[in-house]
Amino acid sequence: MTDGPLRPTLLLVHGAWHGAWCWEKLTSVLGAEGWQTRTVDLPSAGGRAGVQDDAQVIRAELESIDGPVVVVAHSYGGIPASQAVAEAGNVARVVYLSAFQLDVGESLLGFYGVPVSAERGDFETWPGDPVEMFYGDLPRAEAEEAAKRLVPQSAKSFSDALTEAGWHTVPSTYIVCEDDQALPAKSQQALAARSGTVHRIAGGHSPFLAKPVELAALLAAIVLQPDA
């Protein structure tokens, strides 16, 4: 890879229950390869914020970056990322990593056909065993340590619908995680049909932890050869 003034910054947007901490392995690898990275902590993770609040945090980070940006959004993070990039002028591409690439009027619960209920409470608990669901291809001890860092996720963030979907105007790429236990490959493929290009990576829901070197290489290829 060659360095140059046009190489974009990668803005990494985490998914539900997580935080910017989940990108630490990946940012280390990317940094060693000369990539500039930024991360955000979404307020819906650990708080009662919704999609619009998360999108505002992403938008503010985008506004602080000089030059082009490629947004890499994981899982739930794809929803506020889609909202945020619709109003950003410096986003060259959105990469959806096993993420919800939703359209205007859609919500996470709506994607699953789950009705919104006032009885859902303020927070969503993670489904099943998070070690198996999110980190099944990590060493057990590392997976358990990651699971300890998870926080409650705002229920509002799962029921809020998009009012804008930036992928209609910003080029997008989808990365399907083939052995994902949280967002099965079949669901990912349905979402990926909305992207301009689709790539695949072996493994589970969290390749930034399980396969940071492979994921970094794939992201570099996507950015440097976007139509491949």
Rank of each mutant, 00 (worst) to 15 (best):
M1N: 12
T2P: 09
L6G: 09
P8G: 15
T9W: 10
G15E: 04
A16M: 06
W17H: 01
H18F: 09
A20C: 03
A20F: 00
W21H: 05
E24Y: 13
E24R: 14
E24M: 10
K25N: 09
S28I: 03
L30V: 05
G31M: 11
G31V: 03
A32N: 12
E33I: 05
T39F: 02
P43T: 06
P43W: 06
S44P: 08
S44Q: 05
G46L: 10
A55I: 03
Q56N: 12
V57Q: 02
V57R: 00
E61L: 07
L62R: 03
E63D: 15
S64K: 14
P68S: 13
V69K: 00
A73R: 00
H74F: 08
S75R: 03
G78N: 05
I79H: 00
P80Q: 04
A81L: 02
Q83A: 13
A84I: 02
V85M: 10
A86Q: 07
E87K: 04
A88T: 01
A92L: 10
V95W: 00
Y96P: 03
D103I: 07
V104Y: 04
G105T: 06
S107Q: 11
S107L: 05
L109Q: 08
G113H: 06
V116G: 03
D122L: 11
D122T: 05
F123D: 12
T125Y: 06
P127D: 12
G128R: 08
D129G: 10
P130F: 02
P130G: 08
F134H: 04
G136S: 13
L138V: 01
L138N: 02
A141T: 15
A141P: 01
A147S: 12
K148W: 04
R149L: 13
L150M: 11
V151M: 09
P152A: 10
Q153S: 01
S154Y: 07
A155I: 03
K156Y: 03
S157K: 04
A161W: 00
L162G: 03
T163P: 04
P171E: 02
E178G: 14
E178D: 15
Q181R: 11
P184Y: 05
P184S: 11
K186D: 15
Q189L: 15
L191Y: 02
S195C: 12
T197C: 13
G203E: 05
L209S: 01
K211I: 01
K211Q: 11
P212K: 00
L215P: 06
A216H: 01
L218S: 10
I222S: 11
I222C: 12
